[in-house]
């Protein structure tokens, strides 16, 4: 896999990740990431040369069906919930106007 990553690609990734990187940061990441990607891209070849169907491991210790009963547990009070909020009003988190709709 080619790890060519243009400055525009980095800018696109940063916008997906909601980080408004400065021009300098874009330059620096654009320079650093390809070297890192070259190194990590090796995994593809490793898997191919393993020569068999290797299952991906998403959990280091296999477990299944970890569930809880449907019983209400005390949560936080509104004051606790809002304690770290940059701004609040009417017992709600106050945020700047939201543009997009989901």
């Amino acid at each position: 896999m080619s790890s060519a990553l243009s400055r525009e690609d980095v800018a696109h990734l940063a916008s997906l990740a909601r980080i408004s990187l400065s021009e300098d940061e874009l330059d620096r990441l654009g320079a650093e990431l390809p070297a890192i990607l070259d190194h990590v891209a090796a995994v593809q070849g490793v898997v191919e040369s393993a020569g068999e169907d290797v299952a991906p491991m998403s959990h280091p210790v296999p477990v299944a069906n970890v569930m809880r009963e449907d019983v209400v547990r005390p949560g936080l009070t509104p004051d606790e919930a809002l304690s770290g909020a940059p701004a609040s009003e009417e017992q709600r988190f106050l945020v700047p106007k939201i543009l997009g709709e989901e």
Binding site: V43, V46, V47, A50, V54, A55, P56, M57, P60
Partner: peptide, 9 residues
């Protein structure tokens, strides 16, 4: 996906 397979290896 490949990285998770390397974990298996």
């Amino acid at each position: 996906g490949s990285a998770q397979k390397v974990r298996t290896l």
